[in-house]
Amino acid sequence: MTPRPGITPSTILSATVAGLSPVLGMIAIYITLRGHNAPGGGFAGGLIVGIILVLRYLTDGPDALRRLPVDPVVLIGVGLGVAVLTGMAPLVVGESFMESAIWKFDLPLIGSVKVVSSAIFDLGVFILVSGVVAAILVALSEADDEARRGLDDRPGRSGSQGVDR
């Protein structure tokens, strides 16, 4: 754990944020999906993911952002891909670009569920926005970290290997 200068690392805060993160993640997805009928949507959801990362950064330092399970740049691509493919899918069945489809079906226990294809589009927006925010945060925090710590002359040092703990 690399403590940020001027900030005393707090185990309690760190543990709290770590515990909260999955919950916040669920909220982000919930906000995204409910966007169709209530305030929210992919953009807001993606920003919530960004806020989770900011919290992790504040408590755990740059290491938190280095341990991301996916490369944020990949997320950007995936999000854009999902959005474009959703837009193009109607072309396959002869509809016009970005025409939305509505499916309704019943699930046991949950009841009647309505899925709109544009929600998938919004999911793409969500992934993309998460990716962009994460990518910017990772890039800036790395640069910040490097500038603070001083440059390390060892060649080939990549961001994923923390140096001086």
Binding site: H36, G41, G42, F43, S100
Partner: peptide, 16 residues
């Protein structure tokens, strides 16, 4: 568009 939140529907559908 199957959505009650018209702002979002505009974003992802009408003006998608």
């Amino acid at each position: 568009a199957g959505g009650r939140n018209v702002v979002n529907v505009i974003l992802v559908d009408f003006r998608g």
